[in-house]
Amino acid sequence: MIFYLLVSAGFILALLVEGSVFSFFILEKALPDIFLVMVVSLGFILDERRGAAIGFCAGLLQDIIFSKALGFFALAKMLLGYGAGMLGRELYREQLLAPVLLVFVGTLTHEFILHLLVSQFIGFGLPVEISLSRLFIPKAFYNMALTPLIYPLFFRLYERNKRLKSGFSRQKGAIR
């Protein structure tokens, strides 16, 4: 429970920081997406179900705060959380390389999904090749650079929470 509370606080903080303080770190025209890094990291650490749920909630929050239209970020991030969770089962979670690469690929996937949704349902958007070079790739590198800061934090938090939980269970067993 504490883990999820801290994760929620992290998302809220990220939401506030992303829209304000980070605005001066504009690389080309792209901004980092901390939400995305957090969703991929958590999906990778946890599993596909929880990854999708976290992605859905985070995306919906992003939809509500930043866009009048609902569902765009929720759908993209939910799929991303699900995918990260599926891959997390197959790869070593202790190593940083896998989540870093996953964030890079995940960012490109996330942006392509959004591009597809926006062009299909709203009907605007830059040509994909221009978006790729000007927005998607810089953003992917940006997010990739943020991953070594965010992923270990969540991983340690999760491991600590797990240890606390197992210790608590053992204590409960001993009392019995």
Binding site: A52, G71, L75, M78
Partner: peptide
């Protein structure tokens, strides 16, 4: 997941044009 995806797509359809 598919159900949620469909639900979200419907949400996008309804809210995408503006509310």
């Amino acid at each position: 997941l598919l159900a949620v995806v469909v639900g979200l797509l419907l949400l996008i359809v309804f809210t995408g044009e503006g509310r």
